[in-house]
Amino acid sequence: MISNNSSNSNNSPVITLRDLRMRFSDRYVLNGIDLDVNPGQIIGYIGPNGAGKSTTVKIMLGLVEGYTGEVRVFGESPSDGGVDYKKRIGYVPEVAEVYDTLTAREYLTFIGELYGLKPADAESKARRLLEMFGLKDVFDVRIATFSKGMKQKVLIISSLLHNPDILFLDEPLSGLDANSVMVVKEILALLAAQGKTIFYSSHIMDVVEKISDRIILLDGGRIVADGSFEELKGQSQEGSLEQIFNQLTGFNEHQEIAEQFVAIVQEV
């Protein structure tokens, strides 16, 4: 287990998790997570499927209850029932649920208003942000007709309308074309430079490796690595984050599996 918190910022942590455990029926999804997150970091939050990444984020957003341990976001605990701390959070979920019978204008204005913006402000901001993404023409078109990438852009905008201090992004780049990916990565870097905290979950290791200041690797509901990419690399003697990931999650039979897979494909 590598445990080395690289960030020595003076600011008090915006997120604090202490011995966070969560059980779904008979299975523990989270087995005691301890975490402090300071402002201005991009955190790559990675792990195999089912490691508990989404659950952690959902707990912090108050979507999942029944956990044990301590959770503090801006000093507030989701289980206290207060909702004001959510004003400072932006969220791009992995499974993009949108009211897609609405037009982009209607949806984004609505979300902005839920975050407490004035309707006119929300709308003008949404329009300008969409314009930046090259979607000016579809402002009044229903989201249902959007391509995956367009929908993703709408989601990203909806998470930023209210200028949040923490961003939870779950595969935010999915469906985006290469140019948009560059734009979004740059946006994230700029936001972090302004002191925003970005919680970035993804399965695309190259991206995580490049943009993250700190990488947290989750496996089986536990943190198995925590540190900057350089630190992880130094301690595990592997070249890329992908390899570190494989090593730390104890996975090394990809070659074998692939061979067997293809053998099965060829059976018919």
Partner: peptide, 14 residues
């Protein structure tokens, strides 16, 4: 349950 993901993540009380 769609409401949950869209609305509950916003600062809106239950």
């Amino acid at each position: 349950i769609r409401d949950r993901n869209i609305l509950s993540t916003k600062p809106v009380n239950r």
